[in-house]
Design a protein around this nucleic acid. Sequence first.
DNA 1: AATTATACTGTTTATAATAACAGTATTATA
DNA 2: TATAATACTGTTATTATAAACAGTATAATT
Lengths: 204, 204
Amino acid sequence: MVKGLTKRQLQILDLIHTSIDENGMPPTRLEIANNLGFKSLNAAEDHLKALEKKEFIKLVPNVSRGIKVLKKTNNKNVGLPIVGQVAAGQPILAIEHVENHILIDPFLFEKKADYLLRVKGESMLNSGIRDGDLLVVHATKVVRNNQIVVARLDDEVTVKRFKKAGSKIYLIPENDNFDRIEVNSKYGEFIIEGLGIGILRLDI
Amino acid sequence: MVKGLTKRQLQILDLIHTSIDENGMPPTRLEIANNLGFKSLNAAEDHLKALEKKEFIKLVPNVSRGIKVLKKTNNKNVGLPIVGQVAAGQPILAIEHVENHILIDPFLFEKKADYLLRVKGESMLNSGIRDGDLLVVHATKVVRNNQIVVARLDDEVTVKRFKKAGSKIYLIPENDNFDRIEVNSKYGEFIIEGLGIGILRLDI
DNA sequence: AATTATACTGTTTATAATAACAGTATTATA
DNA sequence: TATAATACTGTTATTATAAACAGTATAATT
């Protein structure tokens, strides 16, 4: 289930997508009611209002077929997953973290793109990686000095520059307001999850 | 001229396309009239009938916004073109500038992605746009204050923040080492080519 | 020269569509 | 356990929209 949507609401959203695909325009309340067998137009109206409240659509007042789709959930599983907040103790690609899937060629980059990680915070600003950006990640444990990596320290997943000096390993932020992290025994778990191979910014 | 279409009819057809692109639905007769300055709705009606007769559109009877576009100027090459160096006096999408095509969903962004422009220089660094980045562009002449735009000044294509203050128009770089540009009569040509809607970085 | 197509203004009518109000019943959530 | 959210039926008022009819003027075609 897409987060927050009931089965019925998902059907309505699906119908809106289908209508746009097949008729080139969003449906009216009557068309929704007819398609799903409602005897009352208000059933459609209520569902649309619920979808708007949950910010999946935007209703344009007093405009026929004034339904704008805000979140695109139609590409079920094709393409690459966008991984959002990663909960403690769980693998990155657990379904719960997948915000969406997007259609992009995995072989566009230097290495194969496996998923997109939504970057939190400004710690990599000087590398042109901003809060909310999607880091294109190649899932690998094998990384080299100075590469930008996705690492898990205890239960936190972080994006930093990887540096190995002698026997010491550092995770270096690219922002003077942040301190470098020395990976040592005070951390229970340290795992390299992947290598950053690109950036995708969906808004500007 | 597209075969058989008058200049006015082409404008109507263009408006239908724009409406579908930007509003997600075809226009009403009133919207067409307002957009083109008709005082009578029937002007729009007549044009639609003419377009239907010439089989460029299909009108769906008694359906609001019931306009279906029949002939589409299809993009032969799949995916979005990456536009590199743009030569003087030539349109951005001239074939000579297209480095490559990449597979990416044009509807991933807030507005429809039309092409990707390879950014040259560091003038937008503070917005996290770096040399070599691909700016995702929605081709439009309509931009608002503070948006990141693709503009053509004389023969140079540039990416800057658009600012309008009174009668003055500025193109603002996001880097202290660069000066803002005031668009004035010393430039022979000033054209807004599009709106920046995203960033794609293929290496990191 | 007559006819047709183009490009409109202006008006009216019927229908399409939005949107609010008043209900009922069931299921989740605090 | 009270309250809110979900999932509807049924009705009505208002606005949006399509579409026809009656014109005018000009350019293009037969």
